[in-house]
């Protein structure tokens, strides 16, 4: 994990007087970033009787889980759908990306340097430009309205970013190693298994986290490709917010529940998540 780490530990740094004053703007920004989280949590903990739009900033009088329970009852099947969709999608995506990255970085074939940009373009397309064919196609191959269909779509539209991440990572494996292996007569699979796979854990972490969050957070594909039985949590949440029959305090609690898995990933694996983001930026 050398070149994927953008940050380098500084040896010694110039530190100017009064720099602690800079904490003031940082703390102000902290408030800005925490406000929505505050509202989400505080509203969720209020009892039904206590909830009112006009007192939304007040702290809860007691500690009530009514809202979370109500939201969980509504969202539980959809949280389950999301997990059943996201976990396979993330794992398959990372395997596909690893193989692609390996070939394009270190086991090239004539014309392989054309393949990367052609794949990468898929990362940026606005999905509105493929939505009609996608809906029609998935319907016709019988995968619309199902979780496997959604997994397939996330894996395919994940190919560019996963390939790019592994490509960038494998480029740091010295090519002399590969050449030596080739000369020793190692085949493609041998080289992949014995040289690349063993050092791939960090890249796998990055890609799995990235795919996990982006598939979890997806709305557009889910809304067109799943029926209400199979809705992942984003669609169910939006539906809950749109229907108005469910009070806004429950919506708040629901939105927190929908955010928990990605927040957990972020809290525990944030550093690697950050690296995944950097890879998404290509290398400037």
């Amino acid at each position: 994990m050398t070149s994927t780490t953008a940050a380098r530990s500084p040896k010694r740094r110039f530190r100017f007087q009064g720099r602690y004053l800079l904490l003031i703007p940082l703390l102000l920004m902290t408030i800005f970033y925490l406000l929505p989280l505050y509202i989400m949590l505080v509203t969720g903990f209020k009892s039904f009787a206590e909830v009112s739009l006009q007192t939304m900033w007040n702290l809860p009088g007691g500690f009530s889980l009514e809202n979370y329970i109500a939201a969980f009852e509504k969202l539980a099947p959809h949280l389950k759908n999301s997990l059943m969709m996201v976990i396979p999608a993330a794992i398959i995506s990372s395997m596909v990306g690893s193989v692609n990255g390996f070939v394009l970085a270190r086991w090239r074939f004539p014309g392989s340097n054309l393949v990367l940009p052609l794949l990468l373009f898929g990362m940026f397309i606005p999905y509105q430009s493929i939505l009609i064919p996608l809906a029609v196609f998935m319907k016709n191959i019988g995968l619309a309205g199902s979780i496997p269909g959604l997994i397939l779509v996330h894996v395919i539209y994940g190919i560019p970013i996963t390939t790019l991440t592994f490509y960038g990572y494998y480029m740091t494996v010295p090519k002399e190693l590969v050449e030596a292996a080739r000369i020793d007569g190692a085949g493609m699979f041998g080289a992949y298994r014995h040289i690349f796979l063993p050092v791939s854990a960090p890249a796998f972490v990055v890609v799995i986290i990235w795919q996990f969050t982006s598939a979890w957070n997806d709305f557009l594909f889910a809304v067109i490709l799943t029926g209400n039985e199979n809705w992942p949590v984003t669609v169910a949440l939006q539906n809950m917010a749109g229907s108005q029959i469910i009070a806004w305090n429950v919506q708040m609690a629901g939105s927190f529940l929908a955010a928990v898995p990605t927040l957990l990933v972020y809290i525990f694996l944030g550093r690697y998540f950050l690296r995944g983001l950097m890879a998404g930026a290509l290398k400037g």
Partner: peptide, 28 residues
Amino acid sequence: MNIKKVTWGVLSILILFSLILSACGGGE
């Protein structure tokens, strides 16, 4: 970078989710 640690991190998160998953099923 401790690769082992990272792998364990991923694994434990996946396990955590499968726990939540089964909890969801139960709740349903």
